[in-house]
Simulated assay, not measured.
Amino acid sequence: MSSLRHTADPRLDAYLDAARECILDVGWRRTTLTEVARRAGVSRMTIYRAWSDMGSLLGDLMTREWVGIAAATRVASADTPTPAGIAAAAVATVRALRDNELFLRIVELDPDLMLPYLLSRPGRSQEALVDLLAAEIARGQESGAIRDGDPLLMARSLTLAGHGFVFSAMTMTDAAVSLEQLDEEYARHVAASLAPTT
């Protein structure tokens, strides 16, 4: 979670926890820095010194949340990354994001908050996720387990594909195709795209 602006002070995690509770309770639009301060048991100025507005606070909260999920589901650093291992980690990350209560609440009440990150620019969370994946790909290339290519390009391509499985998978499920089958297909795509060429 090194991409967070605020990492040195554990008190800030408590403030982010308070903000998370607010958003889960009333949604993003009705959450204020004043309410975050009240829930955290600190003054408004304490929160304002850390974040000038709710947008910057939400950016830190989402980064902590999404990168924490990816870090928990990625290939263990002691292992040599393989196409199958990275595919399994990618699917686990997609599922964890899709089931995350904060993600679900934002999509339910304030889906437009996600649009800039899908249409205009990457967020810090996306950049951190790409960096994690690119590092795994590069390590796998060193051992010959993963095909040659630009790790950053490959990581960005796989992240773009992952967006669809996080945000839109439910639009592609019905009696003929289950969510589990889609996830299995995503894993095959990831593994095949990383496999060394013969």
Rank of each mutant, 00 (worst) to 15 (best):
S2G: 14
S3E: 11
L4T: 01
R5S: 10
A8S: 13
L12P: 00
Y15H: 12
L16C: 04
A18K: 07
R20Y: 12
R20S: 03
C22R: 08
I23H: 01
I23S: 00
D25P: 15
V26Y: 01
R29A: 15
R30N: 15
R30L: 15
T31P: 13
T34I: 14
E35R: 14
E35G: 06
E35M: 14
V36Q: 01
V36N: 00
A37T: 05
R38P: 04
R38W: 05
R39D: 02
G41L: 12
I47E: 00
Y48H: 08
R49A: 04
R49S: 07
A50S: 09
W51R: 04
M54W: 01
M54R: 12
M54C: 05
G55K: 10
S56Q: 13
G59C: 14
D60M: 08
D60G: 11
D60E: 15
M62L: 15
M62K: 10
M62P: 09
R64T: 02
W66M: 14
W66Q: 13
G68E: 08
I69A: 02
A70T: 09
A71E: 14
A71V: 14
A71S: 15
A71N: 06
A72Q: 11
A72G: 15
A72E: 13
T73I: 05
T73V: 09
T73Q: 11
R74L: 11
A76K: 12
S77Y: 02
A78L: 08
T80N: 06
A84L: 11
A92R: 13
R98E: 06
R98F: 09
D99K: 06
F103H: 12
F103Q: 09
L104G: 10
L104T: 07
L104M: 07
R105L: 01
V107E: 02
L115W: 12
P116Y: 03
L118F: 10
L119P: 03
S120A: 10
R121E: 14
P122F: 05
G123M: 03
R124L: 14
S125H: 11
E127T: 08
E127M: 11
A128W: 03
A128T: 05
A128L: 06
A135N: 08
R139A: 14
G140L: 09
Q141W: 13
E142H: 12
S143Q: 13
G144A: 08
D148P: 14
G149C: 01
D150R: 13
M154F: 04
S157Y: 09
L158P: 00
L158D: 02
A161L: 15
G162D: 06
G164R: 10
F165V: 01
F165L: 02
F165I: 00
V166F: 12
V166A: 08
M170C: 04
M170G: 07
T171G: 03
M172F: 15
M172Q: 09
D174N: 13
A176C: 07
A176T: 12
S178N: 03
L179M: 07
L179E: 07
E180Q: 06
E180L: 11
Q181H: 11
Q181F: 11
L182V: 00
D183P: 05
D183R: 04
E184G: 15
Y186A: 03
Y186V: 03
H189S: 06
A191S: 10
L194E: 01
L194N: 01
L194R: 01
L194P: 01
P196W: 01
P196C: 05
